[in-house]
Design a binder for these strands. Structure first.
Lengths: 109, 109
DNA sequence: ACAACCTACAACCATAAGGTTGTAGTTTGA
DNA sequence: TCAAACTACAACCTTATGGTTGTAGGTTGT
C-alpha cells in the first residue's frame, strides 16, 4: 500500500471539503488551540469536533502537541501551499505547458 | 436556501477530492472532450464517468456545449483559480493579516 | 427509415462520512 | 487523594458517495 501523491491529494481535498473543518483550519492557522477550545465554538458534540480535528491531522493539515492535559493543535501552512501547488499544476495544464515540457524532453535523447 | 460561498467551497473541494475527477479536469482543461471520449480513458462504466462529469459541472469546474450528438466538456480555469484564492486566504490568516485588517477597520469609526 | 452512437437518468447496492452517546485513560488543582 | 477537566475511541445511526445495470431520448450516416 504505497502512499501515493494521489492518496495525499484525495485526503487533502476531502479534508477541506467540510466547512467546519475549513473553519477549524482557519483557527489553528491563526494560532494554537486546544481541542476543547475549538469544540466550544461549534454547535455539535465534542466528539464530532475531535473527529474533524483527526481528519485534518491525518491529511497533514494540522499537528498536535501535548501540553499537560491539553492537546494543542496548530495548522501547517505548508500543507495548504501544497494544495495550492496542485491547483497551479492544473493551471499549467490549461496553459498547455505540459505539451511544451514534453517537446523539450523529446528533444534531448 | 441561499447559495452561500461556503456551499460553493464545499462543492469545489468535494469535486476535487476524487482522483478520477481530478484527472477528468486535467483533460478538459487541456482541451474539449466528449463525455464518451473521456469515459474511454477509465476502467469503469460510462454512467460512472458521466456522473463524475456531472459533479464537476455542478461545482462549476467544467461546462458542456452540445455539438450534434456529442456533449463537449471543457474546464473552467477561473473556478480553479477561485479555489486557489480560498487557499490564499488561509495563508493570509496564517500570516496574521486578519488581525491587521481588524485593526484598520477599528481605526475608522 | 433505421441501426448505431451519444447521452441522460432511474433504481439499486456497498461502503464511507458525519453525527450521536457512552466508556475509559491522563492530568490537574484543591 | 479525588473530583473535575481534557482527550481518545468504540458502537451505533442516517445519509451521501461511488459504483453498477437497465431504460429511453436525441443525432447521425447510410
Amino acid at each position: 500500500m504505497a502512499e501515493t501523491s494521489e492518496d495525499r491529494a484525495d485526503a487533502l481535498f476531502q479534508a477541506l471539503s467540510d466547512r467546519t473543518r475549513r473553519d477549524i483550519l482557519r483557527r489553528v492557522l491563526a494560532g494554537e488551540h486546544s481541542v476543547s477550545a475549538l469544540a466550544a465554538g461549534y454547535d455539535m458534540s465534542f466528539a464530532a469536533v475531535q473527529k474533524h480535528v483527526a481528519v485534518l491531522e491525518r491529511a497533514g493539515l494540522l499537528s498536535k502537541r501535548r501540553s499537560g492535559r491539553e492537546q494543542l493543535a496548530s495548522g501547517d501552512v505548508q500543507a495548504v501551499r501544497s494544495v495550492a501547488a496542485m491547483l497551479d499544476e492544473l493551471e499549467d495544464v490549461w496553459r498547455g505547458r505540459i505539451d511544451r515540457i514534453d517537446l523539450l524532453l523529446a528533444e534531448e535523447p
